[in-house]
Design a protein around this nucleic acid. Structure first.
Lengths: 342, 342
DNA sequence: ACCAGCAATCGAAACGTTTCGAGAAACGAT
DNA sequence: ATCGTTTCTCGAAACGTTTCGATTGCTGGT
């Protein structure tokens, strides 16, 4: 019943293989033949089946997108945007994205390995955020192209799409310095994650470049994750520590928002008493009171670049591994004010 | 190189078909044989290829998820959650979800028809929000199972997973009535969308049940979409109209948030001057100032139910069309206060 | 002892493409 | 004219499963 390549061949009076050549835009088919076939394809409204093509060509035209459970729950708005970026870019290249999460304690065990890997149902894999090295090694063994987003592993060499974390945090700190702040606290989390580490590094660099000694007592990185509650607690610790501070930079917006909640509960006025800057520019920043000044990260763009990279390596079979860093910008809003001298 | 069903058959000393029977858990295979085959499968670490299975069985184990461009951009946090609900429930049933958007002016044209439909790469389709009837008819012709989420079409009969909009809005309005409010405005949008229409209906019902005549001058539904900017404008119109009002119910949270922005700019205090209630309970509600009282909708659950329904109809081949309505609850937070008499 | 009926197993075709190598046709150089 | 190339087209095998009908071997009723 459904129209197949056979029907097209018959209708056009050519062989199956010729039709296939036309479909796949291969060279060495005469214009006349091509026209005839295209006519038939159009007349019959033919569309080759993905499954059949996949079996014959060993290409699925799917890409896997993997992140860890905890990244997804704590920083969902961020990674959701990245995913959407892959989805839309994927469509342009005729790829669908299969999304899945893995536990961060991944081990090489069928019950936990993403099904699309077992079933060989993807042509490449994009992984976002810090992912278990075991998983990377597993995928590497499968000989599948890999692109990492917002992470880079020393153990397994892959292409990476990175955020300019260091530069971003420098922008934030310098912005505060320009407003006269000198006691600037940093609240973050697990420094195992390179992105957070880099943000902290950027913080230190910016201070040093302005002849200010980074004070370890103003750095709070004991939180295990990057959620608002962790931000709340970090701000709490900061205040309890008795350290004087006039501004906070947070490792991401979620933490900044949590910190704002704490500060407001304590009757601090933002930004007049305390200035604060986030990182990522998720949508909520526009709805906070005051609206959160932050470092804008082009999240969809990260995903889109990852897709382009992986499609390239699929098509060209090139093994070239590269690393691209996506720039970042300071998005000024209402959570920063000049320091008060009183 | 990769291990196939053939290798398993050889290793277990049985025929291809027997292995297939075991893989698919079919009846009529002796325990002894089953054990032997399972052993071989495990020893060889065999996993059948999705593509090959798909070609032979005409099942892709993919589901399509479609929404319209404008729904996605204006109410992204809502539909993203629904999508995530499908994704996670899909995984439990061994289905992947292929996400795509269509323009709301869909016409039956290859450049716009989702590729997974052309390529016969899904076993069923979930559509969320109001979708073009042309698209429904197109999918219907393909004989694919369809489930609608947060929409129901009179033209094409399908299963639907619905929100109890009417009841939800009644809860909201009654909550305000209990706080003494009598002039309650409704801000919404395009009444062509059944969900919005039902919410408005719930608003009217609640008022009538309390012997209050619904005042058409307090109803603002001219916005084309449901975003914050539309909420802002609706609140503006409301205020410009000169009508007295002490509370607002919004057709969704995004509009409520926009309205709050307007009210704050005009120096109204929320909730002491004006109370406001949203609908959907998206995450931003927790970050607004004050935190937005709203009607909680189980968004992931909507998606999950849709997947279960569609998987049932795929497996059982049943043509049963049903409609399930997911209940809703009032989530009290800080944007409602007793009316002031002054 | 015989046979109907059933359960378990198997062989072969089918699913709808791609791809590879072979053959035919056209061409240019000698 | 002849021959070696190049260009175009085709036939057939291959991809890795599922499925259907056929076959074999049992079971139990007579």
């Amino acid at each position: 019943m459904p129209v197949t390549i056979k029907d097209v061949a018959r209708n056009a009076g050519v062989s199956l293989s010729t039709v296939s050549l036309v479909i796949n835009n291969k060279a060495n088919v005469s214009p006349a033949m091509r026209a005839k076939v295209e006519r038939a394809i159009h007349d019959l409204n033919f569309h080759p089946r993905r499954n059949a093509r996949g079996l014959a060509s060993k290409k699925t035209h799917n890409l896997g997108f993997i992140l860890t459970d905890n990244h997804f729950s704590f920083t969902e708005p961020f990674y959701t945007k990245v995913f959407l970026g892959t989805e839309f870019e994927g469509r342009k290249h005729n790829y669908y994205i299969l999304l899945t999460t893995v536990p961060k304690t991944f081990k090489d065990d069928d019950s936990v390995v993403p099904r699309f890997l077992l079933e060989k149902n993807v042509d490449g894999v994009i992984l976002a955020g810090k992912v278990p090295v075991k998983l990377l090694e597993y995928i590497h063994k499968l000989k599948l192209p890999i692109v990492l987003v917002d992470y880079c592993s020393g153990r397994v060499k892959t292409s990476c799409v990175l955020i300019d974390n260091n530069q971003g945090m420098q922008l934030a700190v310098k912005h505060l310095l320009e407003h006269g702040h000198r006691q600037i606290a940093f609240i973050g989390a697990d420094l195992q994650h390179p992105s957070i580490f880099e943000r902290l590094a950027g913080y230190k660099t910016a201070l040093q470049e302005n002849q200010i000694a980074a004070d370890e007592n103003l750095i709070f990185c004991s939180a295990p994750d990057l959620g608002p509650d962790e931000g709340y607690k970090a701000a709490q610790e900061l205040e309890n520590s008795g350290q004087k501070f006039t501004a906070i930079v947070a490792a991401n917006d979620a933490m900044a928002i949590g910190a704002m909640r704490f500060l407001k509960e304590k009757e601090y006025k933002i930004p007049s008493d305390i200035s604060i800057i986030g990182f990522d520019d998720v949508e909520i920043c526009l709805q906070t009171e005051p609206r959160l000044t932050t470092i804008r990260v082009l999240k969809e763009e990260l995903g889109a670049i990852a897709v382009r990279r992986i499609v390239e390596t699929i098509n060209e079979g090139t093994k070239i591994i590269n690393r691209v860093t996506v720039p970042v910008e300071l998005k000024k809003r209402d959570s920063v004010a000049p320091v008060r001298y009183d």
